[in-house]
């Protein structure tokens, strides 16, 4: 009889160790991004835009990382394994969702780029797979934002411009922490079984303006970490704005 008792206790102890925490009181957070350029959502290849220094250009490629997404209120709710590669060629990459405990939150926070830890932790997969062509093979580290295109003012072959912006350590760190407060009356309220939809706009015009005006004629290429990448990152860190919060969808 005693054996039976001990076995039962043993079983209960073991099983409780692997029990999953039941998220009974949680809801869904859906984040939607719109990449804006000029007067509307970005159009790749076919549309000509004008930058802050009056240079005409087209965009052929736009990719960037949004990672470590968190909602902040009296407590904070972080998305697990939070790595998203936003790719203007892939509409499905423009939205992602995660679960958060039921509560009201004042702002959303994320990193524009891949945190330094994942830059030094060996082979990654999913959004961070080197197959995504966002990893430097000669100087280990992720390209945080990549934009490529063409411009008649470009002095390089094919009239191209190409900015692969990265660098995660020391003085070359281009990582930007973005915090977007929700307006009063539009706080994100996570409720059981419901979806809270947070819409964010990324205005790529900011790439060219801001503290450091960027000219394709003067700087057609930037593909290494360093001073130039830092200047461009200081511009584009201001590109995000919150456009809407819809609760209880």
């Amino acid at each position: 009889m005693q054996t039976r008792f001990y076995l039962l206790v043993f079983a209960i102890v073991l099983l409780s160790g692997c029990q999953k925490t039941l998220e009974t009181d949680s809801g869904n957070v859906a984040v939607k991004l719109t990449n804006m350029l000029g007067d509307g959502p970005i159009t790749l290849e076919s549309k000509t835009y004008i930058n802050a220094v009056a240079e005409p250009y087209t965009v052929s490629k736009l990719r960037y990382y949004i990672t470590n997404v968190r909602l902040i209120g009296t407590s904070s709710a972080a998305e697990a394994e939070s790595y998203h590669l936003i790719d203007a060629e892939k509409p499905e990459s423009l939205q992602f969702s995660f679960t958060a405990p039921s509560a009201t939150f004042n702002s959303i926070e994320f990193l524009l780029g891949v945190d330094s830890t994942r830059n030094v932790s060996g082979a990654q997969t999913g959004a961070l797979d080197p197959l995504n062509d966002m990893f430097w093979t000669w100087n280990s580290g992720y390209v945080m934002l990549k934009i490529e295109g063409n411009s008649p003012v470009s002095p390089v072959a094919g009239k191209k411009f190409e900015y692969h912006l990265g660098g995660f350590s020391g003085p070359n760190n281009v990582l930007k922490k973005i915090q977007l407060p929700f307006p009063a009356g539009k706080l994100a309220s996570i409720q059981k079984g419901k979806t809270c939809e947070i819409s964010i706009m990324a205005n790529l015009d900011k790439l060219w303006a801001g503290p450091n005006a960027l000219s394709i004629a003067a700087t057609p290429v930037c593909t290494t970490p360093g001073a130039q990448a830092l200047k461009i990152a200081d511009n584009y860190q201001h590109m995000f704005t919150l456009s809407d919060v819809v609760n209880n969808k």
Partner: peptide, 16 residues
Amino acid sequence: GGINHIEVQPLAPITN
């Protein structure tokens, strides 16, 4: 010293 982890080293010679 450009490579910071043994797992990502092969990416360099494979793609070079």
